[in-house]
Design a protein around this nucleic acid. Structure first.
Lengths: 214, 214
DNA sequence: AGTCATTTTGACCAAATGGTCAGGTTCGTG
DNA sequence: CACGAACCTGACCATTTGGTCAAAATGACT
């Protein structure tokens, strides 16, 4: 008797399930829910189709599991902020952590994008619930900063969308970015360069000065 | 003998083809190339499947035609610029026209997004050719502006991506934007607000001052 | 009215789809 | 080694897929 693992966490399962999830994330991200075939996922995972279905139950359940995995990564990134915090630090941390998520999980980012492109049939609830609340809370803080003259009076929701879109872009439009910049992939230096650029332009753009006022 | 229309431009065709294209744009945008079915397109167009295939030849040809239509809209937006132009005017016009494209053709924007998400299998050539050249040309001008002190020395390619992503977002992530802002759709005022926000933040962010230096 | 091109459509096809299942193999533990 | 649970998988199923075709209906023009 070692660890009283949950009933469905045997060694084999622990080896195969992640393989399947990772393979599926790629396929769903590229082709969307409808366009992804269980066969293609199975091939990408190096397993027979029946085996994949044995583990995940159904295509639908697999897709939902992937969205949940991605949302939990996303939530792990979102820490609370208060009016007392330094706007420059918070905004910069926000941009950097979003960029890190994009970079470490590009397939997950693309999966999310594909889901939203479809009209977010599986994520409506999340968007109109948790995420909306989170945005409202942040937006309130931004507004208070504006009132206190710590940043320009910009619309806080549009600002959040700006940060999301600008970072998300490097996952979702990777093919375009690589095509235009004539690269095989973006390396550390590129990501640092992009992130610094975004921090600089966005902070300055909404009148936030790093390191205390003026 | 009225107009010597091209051989395949009869009245009926002129009525049905656009219907099919518009229906297809929506379906491809939501579900990607693989996920879209000719049947679904036919239903959206209100025609039998065989009739759709009669007009467009094949699913592939239809998809390519749509991408071409979208690229021609895109190209129509891209006018040349020179070092002599006013940075503020050019950047603002750039943001505004990109936003207008997003707004007037959200399905087309989403179609493009879905194509790039897939890895841009049909658009590789365009991205690595025409579009890359266009970006390089603009980037050169931005750099010259920087050298002349008309704007901060920011990476011009990242700047172009920033503008693309920030505007594109309102088409591709429409479902998210509507979910979070709790709206049915964005109206004129919303778009004006977003566009003004983006112009303000981005211009200021890269040190471009509207109306002559200082 | 007649004639020819265009359009319309259901029937049909082979291939692929998501999913089931029975019967096997392997694994962990006593 | 024994034995139950977990795992594996080819055969199979109904449905949907993109695409063809032939035969009928409609259109345009003299």
């Amino acid at each position: 008797m070692t660890t009283p693992l949950p009933p469905d966490a045997t060694r084999t399962r622990l080896r195969n399930e992640p393989r399947i999830l990772d393979a599926a994330e790629n396929v769903f991200a590229r082709h969307g829910y409808r366009g992804a075939s269980v066969q293609a996922i199975a091939e990408a995972a190096g397993l027979p189709k029946s085996n994949v279905l044995y583990y995940v139950g159904s295509k639908r359940k697999l897709y939902v599991a992937l969205l949940e995995r991605m949302m939990s990564r996303w939530n792990a990134m979102l820490d609370d902020i208060s009016v007392e915090d330094d706007p420059a630090e918070v905004l910069e941390a926000f941009i950097r952590s979003k960029m890190t998520l994009t970079r470490t999980h590009p397939e997950g980012s693309r999966l999310f994008a594909a889901e939203v492109l479809q009209g977010a049939p599986f994520l409506q609830e999340y968007l109109r619930g948790e995420l909306r609340d989170w945005v409202r809370q942040r937006a309130r803080v931004f507004e208070q900063w504006s009132e206190r003259g710590l940043m320009d009076p910009v619309d806080p929701v549009w600002l959040i969308f700006l940060i999301w879109s600008a970072t998300q872009h490097y996952a979702d439009f990777e093919a375009q970015v690589l095509g235009i910049t004539d690269r095989e992939r973006l390396d550390d230096a590129d990501y640092r360069s992009v992130t610094d650029f975004l921090c600089r332009v966005i902070l300055k753009g909404c009148g936030v000065t790093p390191r205390g006022p003026q």
